[in-house]
Design a protein around this nucleic acid. Sequence first.
DNA 1: AGATTTCCTGACCATATGGTCAGGATCAAC
DNA 2: GTTGATCCTGACCATATGGTCAGGAAATCT
Lengths: 211, 211
Amino acid sequence: MADTARNRKKNIRAENEALILQAAEKVFAEAGYGGATMQLIADVAGLPKANLHYYFPTKDELYRRVVETIFQIWLDAANVFENSDGPAEGIGAYIDAKMEISRRHPAGSKVWASEVMHRAPVIQEWLESTLNVWTDGRIALIESWIAEGRMDPVDPRHLLYMIWATTQHYADFGHQIETLNNGAPLDDAQWETAKTNVRRIILKGIGVSPD
Amino acid sequence: MADTARNRKKNIRAENEALILQAAEKVFAEAGYGGATMQLIADVAGLPKANLHYYFPTKDELYRRVVETIFQIWLDAANVFENSDGPAEGIGAYIDAKMEISRRHPAGSKVWASEVMHRAPVIQEWLESTLNVWTDGRIALIESWIAEGRMDPVDPRHLLYMIWATTQHYADFGHQIETLNNGAPLDDAQWETAKTNVRRIILKGIGVSPD
DNA sequence: AGATTTCCTGACCATATGGTCAGGATCAAC
DNA sequence: GTTGATCCTGACCATATGGTCAGGAAATCT
């Protein structure tokens, strides 16, 4: 209580923006951009609708900010790939990081998927620049590992797609997975099983022995 | 022309329903359920909006029919799994079939993904019954292959998820893949590369030598 | 404590959307 | 070619939605 009061006095704007962004991420993920309404986001955030428009002038701007947040998380995970000694460590750690994101930020992942499925109206430019460059860099790295005989000569691009697809599936299709798990979310042990299986199958599939 | 005229006379209802369903699938895929409008679907189909409502009373009903169509395609591919001699043939053919669906019905795949991401308002019952049963059957089959030592002891459930995720990724994230391919859709050779890589990595990853 | 900036919100507006309907056109059957 | 069924559609309606705004409350500054 004292804490809340103190925080509220400190920086109302930052606090409310975070609150709204969190609610918006959830609603956009559950309803899609078109299905989400400012009123519903306001209700979830516990604020009057007019207040949303005070902080975020338009629905579009609010959505944009939500997507940017997710993008940042995505980028952070990508760095795990960076400083690695080889395929076992680099790819293994990347898979783990992406699985962890799916677990911790399922709503964000869904918003991302939705955005791409709808032809990326907001992030198109970023796909063409940042993601393209990042991908090319990783492909070059993987190709060097292949040249050194440290893994099978697979197509690096399609390997990346497989990693993205599989890890994000646990967030984007979480509802389906939950339904096939008797309606219950995966527990700790099940997440561990998932992670282990994904890592093992992919690493073995490209001719890399796990750590 | 003569052909069109003859067909038109034959069964107007069937023809127009198919036309509308096709347009609806496209629009639902591109805009999501909430973002799709009856007016836009009508425009794409080249019919007045009121005509849509003559064949499909509500947007909900139209959407339902679109999802059902996709579900049918999905089921057909699932049967490839059925009559197989072992993991190499069964799983390999299933991957091929799913990749082909992603290529031929990208819009349908997106509608499916969207539906599941939004907590499956239309197909929930089917997920709990048909898909659940099908999955359990496939898991049993894979477990028997494992028991016979014909493949590694992986978790069959997560193997299925990986296959679904990876194959559907080529449809659902087709725009991203296209962007990373200099804005061009994958050509025949690239699809072949994709298919080969997916099949090879997964089969090797579970300890099965390809055909 | 007065002034100024920031924050808050109920009431309101213009527009877009799903859906309706009456009346007309077209077709098949006889 | 008359009749009944099916098909077609412009005009219309009720509602929901994104967004505005005036005026007041609260915080911050001097």
